[in-house]
Design a protein around this nucleic acid. Sequence first.
DNA 1: TTGTCTCCCAGTGGGAGACAA
DNA 2: TTGTCTCCCACTGGGAGACAA
Lengths: 377, 377
Amino acid sequence: QVCLNSELWHACAGPLVSLPPVGSRVVYFPQGHSEQVAASTNKEIDSLPSYPSLPPQLVCQLHNVTMHADVETDEVYAQMTLQPLSLLEQKDPYLPAELGMPSKQPTNYFCKTLTASDTSTHGGFSVPRRAAEKVFPPLDFAQQPPAQELIAKDLHGNEWKFRHIFRGQPKRHLLTTGWSVFVSAKRLVAGDSVLFIWNDNNQLLLGIRRANRPQTVMPSSVLSSDSMHIGLLAAAAHAAATNSRFTIFYNPRASPSEFVIPLAKYVKAVYHTRVSVGMRFRMLFETEESSVRRYMGTITGISDIDPVHWPNSHWRSVKVGWDESTAGQRQPRVSLWEIEPLTTFPMYPTSFPFRLKRPWPTGLPSLHGIPYEFEQK
Amino acid sequence: QVCLNSELWHACAGPLVSLPPVGSRVVYFPQGHSEQVAASTNKEIDSLPSYPSLPPQLVCQLHNVTMHADVETDEVYAQMTLQPLSLLEQKDPYLPAELGMPSKQPTNYFCKTLTASDTSTHGGFSVPRRAAEKVFPPLDFAQQPPAQELIAKDLHGNEWKFRHIFRGQPKRHLLTTGWSVFVSAKRLVAGDSVLFIWNDNNQLLLGIRRANRPQTVMPSSVLSSDSMHIGLLAAAAHAAATNSRFTIFYNPRASPSEFVIPLAKYVKAVYHTRVSVGMRFRMLFETEESSVRRYMGTITGISDIDPVHWPNSHWRSVKVGWDESTAGQRQPRVSLWEIEPLTTFPMYPTSFPFRLKRPWPTGLPSLHGIPYEFEQK
DNA sequence: TTGTCTCCCAGTGGGAGACAA
DNA sequence: TTGTCTCCCACTGGGAGACAA
């Protein structure tokens, strides 16, 4: 089920999620993929076979990205077709598209977390005043009370009709007829969020974001979670060995971290940024209201998260402590490309030079011709 | 979610499904497992890597079998832990338990396919007269009208209360209060079946069997179907290479055929039964009313279903034609252990001799010391 | 014997303003 | 400004027998 509307997909995915452009080069992390599967199947990984032939990261070309929404839950996910690249291809100069990072959050939208009243069987949905005025078409205030019919398209292209009325004492915007049908069809409960977008084609789009209900995730009865983990590793290993394409699903709201990273972002973070224990950093997080804020922390260590299976991996290689102890939320380990160190020693001008293809003496670390002595192992 | 009630599980699984006993030796077919995943993900297999190290069948010890029911759909499935056996262990004599084939269908039960009236919002469930008299506790006909409260446990152990009443002109058995709650909670529609069992502990059990709605099967957004297929193969190959345990799910109503077969049944069908093109055979199928009937057919060929990936596999090696052309239902290819050839040349007495362990010159084909010239390659 | 219909009326729940946080 | 309550009454749908396949 392909989701046709990119704006709506990105709005549901959240402000921090951006999909690398088709054709660009990315770095794929089997460990991160594995974390997503573990989160989705709600099952820890027991003992898995090692795949010594599979490196902890794979530089790939991203051949295809399609945006989808789960038919049952409307959960957004992306399907990506990746092809591991030869060392030579990894060292090709960047295309312009690989450096720009488009963030496609729509501007004319609002997101509201549903209250108990919004989801109760008595009555409809209370629309925040600014939201209604900004996102919905203007009401005809000559009518008494002012009202109109709204038609909104969900992620699957299905249309939902709502009566939008401005009434009550004091006056407020409400969605009445049609609202409860939507709530029960999507099985929304208080705490879930809905998201209305008014797009450039004067269409109203309607997405949902469910509250985190980690217990709801059901173990698949199709394949054991062990086989799923092995499958992901074997599929990547096979693709790496044969330089053939493989397909992955990225579920931005289930996955603890993105595991397909633009090559440029990875290289900049790993080879062009110096970090050390004790260094202060900032990191972006999504707020409840679907905007972003920065949290501060201190680097407390740099080491392999899994020295046995994945030695010398940069995945979550940075141990951190967070300033605000409200945590438990924020992971104790992050990857270099997720953080902004507060004191950096820029080793190159911030605007990357476009370089001509030429042979390099060795693999990825020399991607930009950085002298070895400046690189971190 | 473990299903506690074995009778109910078997009743829901159907009369043809029998799980091999724990501790027994079984033959596992990756191809059959693959078919189940294909059926569950509703996706054909594209191109998969070959696993030359993985034979088309694996003789395993069945260490554990647990019966489950999907939390969302109540679909029954079994989890099995298998361990590939060494050649020597494969040749051990049979344990008594490996020869008996227990079929655990309960006797005191009924299964009814729901009508439009049964699932409509107006009124309850019409209980077939014989079914009510056989399975439900007797009503007190002194009351007018006779009525009682029934409490039935579903696959998850949840209890459902129903008012059972005998009324109307002409008189009939009905379930009223409580029925519609059950229908909407389980999201039953006309065409689905319900199944009531009165067990030996005087408990009423309640299972459901959904009508085949193959389009409903959603593609998982957790892992690509390719990775799932690779995962199943890689997990089996890894287990075979290291003689370690692996876990599979068997979904009797989703899977086209059983893919974990008792070793004795496999050996008897493959090495002790002679089949040839033109031979007539019978095969068991489940009827709409959850009983069994035999269909007749003729063997039209014997060949590998997939000579590239699985040469010399016995999985669906028999091409057949069916007498009743109502088919499209019945597969054009079956495996030897699924059919009863009508003219057999018994090569051994029907009761298997228990043999002592002793060394054999070669692998599985000599399992029972059958001279080579009698064996089919 | 049992599937569907219609009738009856109790209770659910949409839709309104009141009210208070 | 907006979350919750209560009130009102239309309509849904449980539960009964009628009726026909």
